[in-house]
Each structure stands twice: as C-alpha cells, then as structure tokens.
Amino acid sequence: MKLRHLLLVDDDPTINFFNRYLIGKMNIFDQIHVAENGQLALDKIEELQKIGETLDMILLDINMPIMNGFEFLDHYEKLSDKIKSSVVVCMLTTSLAKEDLEMSKEYDLLSDYIDKPLYEAKMRELINKYFGK
C-alpha cells in the first residue's frame, strides 16, 4: 500500500531537507510537501483541497515564526470534518518543555507526539500504527 500525501511543517530547512530525504527513501508517500510555518501549512491544505486531494499525514513542529504549531491546530480544528477525517497529525519537535507536552494533550485531533530526530524505525512504527494492514 502506498499513501498519497505527507505534509512536513517545520521552519528549519535542514530538518526539512533531511526528513524529506529519509521518508522519500522509505517510499511510503507519493508526494511529500513542505510548509515553513502554520499559515503556509493551512494554505497547502486548501491548495490540495481545491484539486480534490486530502492529506494522509502531517508532521508538525511547535516553534515556528508567523504561526506556531499550536496556533495551526487552533485553525485546523475549525476546518470541515471531510478534510480532517482521514489525516494523522503528529507532533515532531525538539521542544523539551513539559508545558508543550501538556498542551499537546489538550488537542484530541493530535494522534501522536514524537521527539526529533526522526529515524527510519520511528517513521516505520508510526506508519504501521496508523496505516498498518
């Protein structure tokens, strides 16, 4: 089984470069999209919706300029269920702050919370957990 769309939301270009390389190599998704902050992520979702496509997964960082991860989730929550229903949203962050972890638990639509760096094994585990046969 191959999934269609993954969205990486992170402001660090090196992280995006690496994660795109790592996940690309695993050959799970048809397309890997990148957004540098929450606002650009919302734009990307709208753009996909216009061509009738929906995301399968979002990997979301917390600390970003313009619109951070939590602010993105506040906006994302208001989108129609049709857009959200099949999407797995996962926090992927280096933030060590306990309050960030606490805050993450407030969001029901957040499926998982994992630390950077991302390894192939971690990614595989996620995929199996949410899209496994």
């Binding site: 660090d12 090196t14 992280i15 690496f18 790592l22 600390n63 962050t93 280096t94 933030s95 060590l96 702050a97 950077k116 760096p117």
Partner: peptide, 12 residues
Amino acid sequence: HDLKAPVINVKN
C-alpha cells in the same frame, strides 16, 4: 530547543 535543533541537524 534552539541548541538542540542545529545539533540534531549535524547528526542527521
């Protein structure tokens, strides 16, 4: 966070 991010990048 600000220190770890570049270090993770270096590792990657």
